[in-house]
């Protein structure tokens, strides 16, 4: 692995998607758990726990998409046109998620709130699932023809392995969202979400173990990579330690450390995915020679360089004020008249 511009951009795009998973992941998780409570007041607390931040979190996806477009236009073009219907479904579910948050509490009628609650939960679950399925397909490899165009079908995207990764993603975000919820709530709801969090952890661990086995058994190119580089298991180990640390921090009453552990879980998973993938961006199955790599799918090095300067100026500023904003809204959620 040499740190040329293409590799740096592979890492940066990965960082942006990881940032998205870590931040919007808990928004989507809160959405997925939303219907588990029936009380309007509790649903409002859940909504408002992500209220001030979900918008900014979704921007990570927008920026990751923009960075992919700029740095690896061939990947952007092949994947987005290839996964056409899947991505439109993803867009539709992200839209329902977004507007449901905005619209839900604007009217007091039961049917109104129930409708948007279902939209919020459905949109969140479907978004997580589809994002996971897309990731699963990239990990498994998709058919690419010699022009570098996607050569599969919509139904071909719904094979068992990608679906398994999709469900694992839902579980991961549910766990992440529940832990975030524990951190942001108090009283009865707090205890309730803590129970959800424990169940979500179990659900996730089962899914993750199944996915890991399936990967090693059925995805030969990743299995080969792991065989050749046994040190990759140290990341798996770190990942398991991070998960195990969550109940421990709960027990010690350090909810925010539990949340950081959950973030570490996501980071290690994405790191594993990236290391297994490199230098491929879209692995072509059954013709690996048609694969899109960080070299044959990239923009000119001048653009990668310019963009690196843009990112170098922009990203530190973004991180600085994002931290400030999370700081302003720290602590438990209180419903007031500005709330959703």
């Amino acid at each position: 692995m040499t740190f040329d511009l293409n590799t740096i951009w592979f890492i940066l795009v990965g960082v942006l998607f990881t940032g998205y998973a870590m931040l919007d992941g808990f928004d989507l998780g809160i959405g997925a758990l939303h219907l588990f409570t029936k009380k309007d007041e509790e649903r409002r607390v859940l909504l408002n726990s992500i209220g001030p931040v979900w918008d900014g979190n979704e921007v990570w996806l927008v920026t990751a998409g923009g960075a992919l477009f700029a740095a690896f236009p061939n990947v952007y073009a092949t994947v987005f046109s290839g996964f056409y219907l899947a991505f439109y479904l993803l867009l539709a579910s992200l839209i329902f998620r977004a507007v449901a948050i905005e619209f839900r509490s604007k009217q007091p009628m039961f049917w109104w709130r129930q409708m948007w609650d279902i939209g919020f939960a459905g949109g969140s679950i479907l978004s997580s699932l589809l994002l996971g399925v897309a990731l699963g397909n990239i990990a498994q490899g998709v058919p690419v023809d010699e022009r570098g165009e996607f050569a599969g079908t919509f139904l071909g995207l719904l094979q068992p392995y990608p679906l398994l990764v999709g469900i694992t993603t839902v579980a991961l975000f549910m766990m992440h969202g529940a832990i975030y919820g524990v951190m942001k709530t108090e009283g009865e709801l707090h205890d309730k979400i803590r129970r959800w969090a424990m169940n979500a952890i179990i659900f996730f661990v089962i899914c993750a173990a199944t996915t890991t086995m399936a990967t090693l058994l059925y995805i030969p190119h990743i299995a080969a990579r792991v065989r050749d580089n046994p040190w990759l298991f140290s990341i798996v180990l770190a990942n398991m330690l991070a998960i195990a640390n969550i109940p421990r921090e709960f027990h010690r009453g350090k909810d925010w450390l539990a949340f950081l552990s959950s973030c570490a879980t996501i980071i290690t998973l994405m790191l594993l995915f990236g290391l297994n993938q490199y230098p491929y961006m879209v692995y072509s199955l059954p013709n690996p020679e048609n694969s899109l790599t960080i070299h044959n799918a990239a923009s000119s090095s001048r653009t990668l360089e310019t963009m690196l300067i843009i990112a170098g100026i922009g990203v530190p500023i973004v991180i600085a004020y994002t931290v400030c904003i999370y700081w302003i809204f720290r602590g438990k959620v209180k419903i007031d008249r500005m709330s959703y």
Partner: peptide, 26 residues
Amino acid sequence: VGDVFGSALAAEGIFAFFLESGFLAV
């Protein structure tokens, strides 16, 4: 247009959308 359009779009994300949505919370 990836080289051109993509960089403008990415710059929009980094310089505009983050700024807008972040401070919108406040």
